[in-house]
Structure formats: structure tokens, C-alpha cells
Amino acid sequence: MKITNQIARFRKETKTSQAELAAAVGVTRQTIISLEGGKYIASLPLAYKIARNFGRTIEETFNLEGVFNNE
């Protein structure tokens, strides 16, 4: 089971830096780096915060490979 995400893409689209996103959702920049690199899987509350920050849904932001495909 692998969870991929669109954080880096949405960040580029909204011209948000990693530090800005981290401050907005209340985590460290390192956590955003790990999330974008696929090393760390966000908790449900954090996933909600990130998705809401971009004005998206969780399904648009995160994708559980092999189970759902929203590409």
C-alpha cells in the first residue's frame, strides 16, 4: 500500500513555499519535505488541513495507490 500526494504540485500552482505551508498547517518544514518525498504518511487531521489549505478535497490531494485512482 502506497500513498502518493499532490502537495508539491498544488504548492507550485499556488506559489506557496514549504515553510509557508508548514506554518499554515502547524508542522515543521521537514514534515512537508518528507510528505512530498513520500517518506512519511500524514495523519488524517493533517491530511485534512493540507487539503483544506489548498481548497481541495483529501481525495484530490492524496491517493491510495491500487485502491483508488483519481488521476
Binding site: 502547524g26 515543521t28 521537514q30 514534515t31 518528507s34 512519511y40 495523519s43 493533517l46
Partner: peptide, 11 residues
């Protein structure tokens, strides 16, 4: 505070 409450750091 951010480091202490960061969920990745806690994990």
C-alpha cells in the same frame, strides 16, 4: 512549540 507538536517528530 512547532517542533514539539509536529506529528512526524512525535512519531
Amino acid at each position: 512549540f512547532l517542533e514539539a507538536t509536529d506529528e512526524r517528530n512525535i512519531a
